[in-house]
């Protein structure tokens, strides 16, 4: 859900190169841990997890212009290392499909992988105290909010923080505004002009969910739906195949 996939040409080269370096360092670390017989078992498993993620992403959320990723669920099922590797594969295949930039694969993987890793550890901590469903929902919400915040910080730092803020206004426009205000005062008001009613009319917001508030609403709705779905799927596993959740609390 967090991956409003960053397209090519948005992030300066220094950032995406750094993203690739960090991503490959983590990939090297995680792949280095898998050896021997584990390799034969875990690579097909990670491949299936990646394929599942691609399929989850094709599930539309009705009227909302976002789609599922279920990265946290994959983190819970496959563990932090394998899910990170699977997410790299998913992002590369998506980039080849024009879904997110090729140069942004590193950063997109770090963002989504971070979501899976954070989700896994949060679920591990919470599921010891709360029910599986509730833990999955809470860890999903927290991980998604974290990765969305990270993405916004990244975009803010590349575009300039002031450009990203919703109510930002440029210095160049201030002059225009002052000029406009002066000219407004100079304008002759009609005879039946009522200052009180005019002030009341200015206070009315006909479309309050527009612009940035609409973007935030869409993101929050997406997070809510994805978290609920993750919780319901984990609930399903806890009833049908509780062994799937063993990776979090190995016996």
């Amino acid at each position: 859900m967090s991956h409003i996939h960053l397209p090519d040409g948005v992030i300066p080269p220094a950032w995406w190169i750094l993203g690739f370096v960090l991503c490959f360092a983590l990939l090297w670390l995680f792949t280095g841990r898998i050896k021997g017989d584990e390799l034969r078992r875990k690579i097909p498993f990670a491949g299936v997890i990646a394929a599942l993620m691609l399929i989850f992403m094709s599930v539309p959320l009705g009227f909302l212009p976002v789609h599922l990723s279920l990265a946290v669920l994959c983190g819970i099922l496959a563990g932090p290392g394998l899910s990170f590797i699977a997410i790299f594969v998913v992002n590369t295949i998506l980039a080849l499909m024009g879904h997110g930039g090729f140069t942004a694969i590193g950063i997109n993987t770090l963002l989504m992988g971070g979501e899976a890793i954070a989700g896994y550890y949060l679920f591990k901590i919470l599921s010891g105290r709360l029910s599986c469903t509730f833990s999955a929902i809470l860890s999903n919400i927290t991980a998604l909010l974290l990765s969305t915040a990270l993405m916004l910080i990244l975009v803010a730092s590349t575009a300039g923080l002031s450009e990203v803020l919703p109510f930002h206004d440029h210095g160049q426009n201030h002059g225009e505004e002052v000029h406009f205000a002066e000219s407004k005062q100079e304008e002759e008001l009609p005879e039946n002009y009522d200052e009180h009613k005019a002030a009341e009319a200015e206070g009315v917001k006909f479309l309050s969910i527009t612009g940035w508030s609409a973007v935030i609403m869409i993101i929050l709705s997406g997070i809510f739906i994805e978290s609920l779905l993750t919780g319901l799927i984990v609930n399903f596993f806890s009833k049908v195949r509780p062994d799937f959740l063993d990776i979090v609390h190995p016996t």
């Binding site: 792949t31 097909p44 299936v48 394929a51 790299f88 594969v89 590369t92």
Partner: peptide, 12 residues
């Protein structure tokens, strides 16, 4: 390992 993973993903 990563290339194998691509192939397994694609097949699955």
């Amino acid at each position: 390992v990563i290339i194998d993973l691509f192939i397994f993903t694609y097949r699955s």
